[in-house]
Design a protein around this nucleic acid. Structure first.
Length: 188
DNA sequence: TATCAGATGATCT
DNA sequence: GATCATCTGATAC
């Protein structure tokens, strides 16, 4: 599984108005095609999720709940359509720019949460499909894996949630980790 | 400090 | 027309 290895990695993005880098502290893994009911790719390939069926290391960006952009890293090759959602991070470079993009927000909250993370980085929706290993992106993965905690994914309703899929990974104690948020439960 | 419910629009059935 | 991998502000404690 790739997600735990990406914890602590530093992702940078050169936007027209400047550069911001973040250190990933919270991730969620998603699989596809019948493996993972919580995944966008569960029901097969659609125009939106086509990127996930492509090359690993590319960016899958999508628009959610009418107001947020969420960012994923395509994880596995061969059309297996898995991805890693970046849920939380801390800003390590371009702090002033990130603050300007998110006025009135505490430093520790700048990239804590999927939608906030995308806004702080300044990645537009149409950056989806880009190669994260080439300009304008930079991605530095740590050599030695850090100690990762894992648990049920947040915000995944229905059959994809709960302990059956403990594919949320975070750095214990890191301030960039969002508090576990009880989602409105449909039923238990 | 912790929890809840509403907003809001693209995507899929 | 229903769903949704969320955020924010308001409320309760």
């Amino acid at each position: 599984m790739l997600a735990p290895l990406l914890l602590g990695a530093v992702l940078g993005y050169d936007a027209p108005d400047g550069r911001v880098s973040i250190r990933l502290s919270e991730l969620e893994a998603y699989r596809g095609l019948g493996e993972d009911p919580g995944s966008h790719a569960f029901r097969g390939r659609t125009p939106r999720n086509a990127v996930m069926f492509g090359e690993p290391g590319h960016l899958y960006a999508y628009f959610s709940y009418g107001m947020h952009v969420c960012l994923n890293i395509v994880a596995r090759p061969e059309g297996s359509s898995s991805g890693v959602l970046m849920r939380g991070a801390t800003v390590v470079d371009g702090l002033d720019l990130a603050r300007r993009r998110r006025p009135g927000v505490n430093d520790r909250d700048l990239a804590r949460g999927p939608g906030r993370l995308a806004k702080a980085l300044g990645v537009p929706l149409d950056a989806g499909g880009s190669d994260l290993l080439a300009r304008p992106f930079t991605l530095q993965v740590l050599q030695a894996p850090l100690h990762a905690a894992s648990g049920p994914r947040t915000g995944v309703g229905g059959a994809g949630g709960g302990l059956q899929y403990p594919w949320r990974f975070w750095l214990p104690g890191d301030e960039g980790v969002s508090p576990y948020r009880r989602h409105k439960l449909a039923a238990e």
